[in-house]
Nucleic acid binder design. Structure first.
Length: 422
RNA sequence: GGAGAGGUGGCAGAGUGGUUUAAUGCAGCCGUCUUGAAAACGGCCGUGGCGAAAGUCACCGGGAGUUCGAAUCUCCCCCUCUCCGCCA
C-alpha cells in the first residue's frame, strides 16, 4: 500500500496514476478519514495522558480522602476515552480498508494507454521458423503424440483441466528442471513453498481484498491456494526487520498456481494455454530501493535468456499504464511465439513493486538512514504449460513428432518425442 | 484428534494489580584508560502513531473484558513444545 503520508503529500500524483490505470480509488474519502483520525487521536491521547498521571498519584497515595475523588473523576475520563476511542477505531478500520484498495503509483516513464492494446513492443528476437508444411497447433500434435488427455481431465475435474502424458509430461518436467537450474546456477536460492496461505498473507501480497474473485480457498479453514509463488515470497519475511547487509535476496521456486477465472466461452477454449491450475517457475527479489531498477532489468534479461536458449522467437513488451498490475509500478512481459496457434504467448511478467508490498507485509531492513522498506520484484522464469506449447509448436516436424531442443536433451534423455503407436 | 506445558526486547531471562518510562545478563555501538588489544569503567542500545517542537500515546502471541490503573486477573482465538493416537 501507499503510506497515508505519501497520499497526503502527493495527492495529485496519486489521483493521476489511479486515472491512468483506468480504475478508481477512494482518495478523497481517505484524506477526510485521515484528518478525522488525527483529530481524534490527539483528543484521546490527551485524555490518556491525564488518566495515566492521575492513576500514578492514586497508586502512590494511601489516603482514601485523596484517592476517592480522583477515582471518581477518572471514571468519567475513562468513559470519555472509551467513547472517543470507539470512534477512532471505526475511523481507522475504514481508513485502513480503503488504503488497501489504492493501487501502486506508476513509473512516470510507463507508456500511457487504457488497456493492453497500448502496450509497447520494445524488442523482437529470433527468426520465426519457416515450415515446409502447415504447422499444427499443440492440441493436434498432442493427439498424434498421445501427449495430452483433455477428455479425461474434464471427466476428473471439469472443463479446462487436462492430463499430460508420456513425452509431453516429461517435457514439462524437463523445462522446470532447466529453468530452475539456470537460476540457481546464477545464485538464486531455490525454495519449496506452501501452496496454500492464510488470508493475512494474501492481503499482504496485494491479492486481497480487491481480487477475491480470482482465488480458490478452503471452505472451512483459513487456506487460500496461491495464484502465483509471488504471494508466498512476499510473505517469507512478513513482519520482520531484516538485519543490515542481508540484501539483496534472490529466490526462485517452482509451484503450481491456482486461478479462478471467468473463462469466456469462445476464448482460449482449446489446448492448455489457459487453465485453473498450472505450473510456473518464479523469480523473486528483495533489494534496497536504490537497486530496484537495476534488479528489474536483470530479471527481464534472465527471463528472455530462456526462450533464447530454447531457440524460440520471443518479444518483449513494456506494459502501458492501463495494463500494469495493482501492485506494480512498471512491468515487462515476455511472449514466446507459437506458430501453430499463430499467436504470441505470455510466458513471463516482470514487475517492480517498489515498497508497495513491503509496506503491506510490514517488511523492513536496517540500512543506511535507519529502518527502511525494501523494494520487492517478481518475474516468471517461466510459465510452464505455455513453454510446453511453444516448444511443441516450434519444434514440430511434418509427421507430428517434436524435436527436443538441444538444451533440454540432457533432461529428456531423448532427442525426439515420437508419435504414439496406434 | 486427546492430554499437558508454554508464548516478555537481537538472544537469554525476571516480573502474578500501582515508584516498571519491562529488572538483570549476553551480544552490539560510542567513549575513558592503553603503544595497540584485552580487561575494567561510563554512556548508548526495540517498533510505530501524533506533534513545528517540547513532548506524548501505543505495543509483553492476537482479540475482547474487569479496573481509576493490566505484562500481571477473566474469556475467546492463534502458534510453539512434550507425550499419545493417526498418517505419507
Amino acid at each position: 500500500m501507499l503510506s497515508i503520508q505519501y497520499i497526503r503529500e502527493n495527492t495529485e500524483r496519486v489521483k493521476r496514476d489511479v486515472a491512468l490505470r483506468n480504475t478508481t480509488a477512494p482518495i478523497d474519502r481517505i484524506l477526510r478519514l485521515d484528518e478525522e483520525r488525527r483529530e481524534l487521536l490527539q483528543q484521546v491521547e490527551q485524555l490518556r495522558n491525564k488518566r495515566n498521571a492521575a492513576s500514578k498519584v492514586i497508586g502512590q497515595s494511601k489516603d482514601p480522602a485523596e484517592r476517592e475523588p480522583r477515582i471518581l473523576e477518572m471514571r468519567l475520563v475513562g468513559d470519555e476515552i472509551d467513547r472517543l476511542d470507539g470512534r477512532l477505531k471505526t475511523v481507522e478500520t475504514e481508513l485502513n480498508g480503503k488504503l488497501l484498495e489504492v493501487p501502486n503509483i506508476l513509473d512516470p516513464n510507463a507508456p500511457k494507454g487504457p488497456d493492453e492494446h497500448s502496450n509497447v513492443v520494445v524488442d523482437v528476437v529470433g527468426e520465426k521458423r519457416h515450415f515446409g508444411f502447415h504447422p499444427r497447433p499443440h492440441w493436434e500434435l498432442a493427439e498424434i503424440l498421445d501427449g495430452i488427455d483433455f477428455e479425461r481431465g474434464v471427466k476428473m475435474a471439469g472443463s479446462r483441466f487436462y492430463v499430460l502424458k508420456g513425452g509431453i509430461a516429461r517435457l514439462q518436467r524437463a523445462l522446470i528442471q532447466f529453468y530452475l537450474n539456470e537460476h540457481t546456477r546464477d545464485g538464486f536460492t531455490e525454495c519449496y513453498l506452501p501452496d496454500m496461505l492464510s488470508e493475512a498473507s494474501l492481503v499482504a501480497a496485494g491479492q486481497l481484498p480487491k481480487f477475491r474473485d480470482n482465488l480458490y480457498r478452503d471452505a472451512e479453514q483459513d487456506y487460500y491456494f496461491i495464484p502465483t509463488a509471488e504471494v508466498a515470497f512476499v510473505n517469507l519475511y512478513r513482519d520482520e526487520i531484516l538485519p543490515a547487509g542481508m540484501l539483496p535476496q534472490r529466490f526462485v521456486a517452482h509451484t503450481p498456481c491456482f486461478r479462478r477465472e471467468k473463462m469466456s466461452a469462445g476464448r482460449d477454449v482449446r489446448g492448455i494455454k489457459r487453465g485453473h491450475q498450472f505450473e510456473k517457475v518464479e523469480m523473486f527479489v528483495y533489494c534496497e530501493p536504490e537497486q530496484s531498477q537495476a534488479e528489474l532489468d536483470t530479471l527481464v534479461r534472465r527471463a528472455r535468456s530462456l526462450p533464447e536458449k530454447l531457440g524460440i522467437p520471443y518479444r518483449v513488451l513494456e506494459l502501458c499504464t492501463g495494463d500494469i498490475g495493482f501492485n506494480a509500478t512498471k512491468t515487462y512481459d515476455i511472449e514466446m511465439w507459437a506458430p501453430g496457434q499463430d499467436e504470441w504467448l505470455e510466458v513471463s511478467s516482470a514487475s517492480n513493486c517498489l515498497d508497495f508490498q513491503a509496506r503491506r507485509a510490514n517488511i523492513r531492513f536496517r540500512g543506511e538512514g535507519g529502518t527502511r522498506y525494501p523494494h520487492l520484484l517478481n518475474a516468471s522464469g517461466l510459465a510452464l504449460p505455455r513453454s510446453v506449447i511453444a516448444v511443441m509448436e516450434n519444434y514440430q516436424r511434418e509427421d507430428g513428432s517434436v524435436e527436443v531442443p538441444e538444451v533440454l536433451r540432457p533432461y529428456m534423455g531423448m532427442d525426439v518425442i515420437e508419435p504414439a503407436r496406434r
